[in-house]
C-alpha cells in the first residue's frame, strides 16, 4: 500500500505544481494585456465621462468620436500617409543595397572583407544619438533638412548595418555549387546575384522586411530632429505633438495611438511567422 501511495502523492504534487505554474503564467498574461485593453476601452469613451466617474464604471455611451477627432482635428489623416511615404522607400532601399553588400561579403574572398563586415556590424550597434548632430548638419548642408529625403536617406543608410549583417550570414548558408553552376553556364555576376541568390534569400528578406518596416515606421527621434514642418511629420512625432496641445483630450490621444499602431499590427498579424523569425535573426549568431 505504502509503495503505491508514494508515487501517487508525488504525481499529485507534480500536477499541483504544474497548475501553480499555469496559474502564474495566466495571471501574468492578463496583467500584460491590461494596458492594451484599457487603451481600447478608453478610446471608445468620452473624456468627461472617465474624468467624472472614474475608469472602472460602465460607460455612459460608446462612440467612435475620439477616433474621428484624432483623424481630423488631430491630423492623423496626414501624419499616417507621411509615415508610409518615409518608410516604404527606405525599406526597399535598405533591403536592396544591403543584399548587394551581403552578396559581396558572403561570396567573395577579397582584401578588406572582414573589416568591412565589422564596420557594418559595429555601426548597427551604435547608440544612434552619437550620429544625431552630425547627421542634422549633413542634411542641412545637402539642403534636404526638413524634407522626406532626409529621413529616407538616413534610414536607408543606417539600417544597412543590421540588414547586411543578417543577409550576409544567411547567404553564406547557400551552397556555392548552385552559384558555380550558373557561372559555368555563362551567367554574369549580377545575373547570379539577381536570378539565383536573391530568390534563395527570400525567407531572410521577408523576415527582415517585417522587422525593418516596424523599426522605421516606429522611429521617433530622427523624425523629431530632421523634420520641422507639421505637414511632413510621420505619425510618431505627430502624435507626440498632440500631447502638447491642451485642447486635446486624452481619449483622442489614445484613439490616435491605436490608429497609429494599426499598420504595424496588420503587418504583424499577416506576417507573424516572418516577424518572429526576424527577431531571432540578429541573435542567432
Amino acid at each position: 500500500m505504502a509503495a503505491q501511495t508514494l508515487p501517487q502523492t508525488r504525481a499529485a504534487g507534480r500536477a499541483w505544481s504544474r497548475y501553480l505554474v499555469y496559474g502564474l503564467v495566466y495571471a501574468l498574461t492578463l496583467a500584460w494585456i491590461t494596458p492594451v485593453l484599457v487603451a481600447i476601452l478608453t478610446s471608445f469613451r468620452s473624456n468627461s465621462d472617465i474624468l467624472a466617474r472614474g475608469f472602472w464604471t460602465l460607460p455612459n455611451s460608446i462612440s467612435l468620436q475620439s477616433f474621428f477627432n484624432a483623424w481630423t482635428r488631430g491630423g492623423l489623416s496626414h501624419y499616417l500617409p507621411n509615415s508610409f511615404i518615409i518608410t516604404l522607400p527606405a525599406l526597399v532601399g535598405t533591403l536592396f543595397l544591403s543584399s548587394l553588400a551581403a552578396y559581396a561579403l558572403a561570396r567573395f574572398n577579397f582584401r578588406g572583407n572582414r573589416v568591412i563586415f565589422f564596420i557594418f556590424v559595429g555601426g548597427a550597434l551604435l547608440p544612434f544619438q552619437i550620429l544625431l548632430l552630425p547627421v542634422f548638419r549633413l542634411t542641412d548642408w545637402l539642403g534636404i533638412y526638413n524634407t522626406y529625403w532626409a529621413l529616407i536617406v538616413f534610414h536607408t543608410s543606417f539600417q544597412l548595418g543590421f540588414c547586411t549583417f543578417v543577409l550576409r550570414n544567411y547567404m553564406r548558408t547557400i551552397p556555392g555549387e548552385i552559384l558555380e553552376a550558373a557561372r559555368m553556364d555563362g551567367c554574369s555576376e549580377f545575373g547570379i546575384y539577381s536570378r539565383i541568390m536573391l530568390p534563395l534569400t527570400i525567407p531572410a528578406l521577408a523576415a527582415l522586411a517585417t522587422l525593418e518596416f516596424t523599426w522605421i515606421f516606429n522611429d521617433f527621434q530622427w523624425a523629431l530632429v530632421l523634420l520641422q514642418a507639421d505637414a511632413l511629420k510621420p505619425v510618431t512625432t505627430g502624435l507626440a505633438s498632440l500631447q502638447g496641445q491642451y485642447i486635446m483630450d486624452w481619449t483622442v490621444i489614445i484613439a490616435g495611438s491605436l490608429i497609429a499602431t494599426a499598420p504595424t499590427v496588420l503587418v504583424f498579424i499577416f506576417l507573424q511567422r516572418y516577424f518572429i523569425a526576424g527577431l531571432t535573426l540578429g541573435s542567432s549568431k
Partner: peptide
C-alpha cells in the same frame, strides 16, 4: 566584390561612420 559594395558602403560611411568621427 567592390562593385557590389561601392554604393552601400559609401552610404554607410557617409551617414554612419563619418558622422561618428565628426561627433
Amino acid at each position: 566584390p567592390y562593385l557590389f559594395l561601392v554604393v552601400p558602403l559609401a552610404l554607410f560611411l557617409m551617414w554612419v561612420i563619418g558622422p561618428l568621427f565628426y561627433s
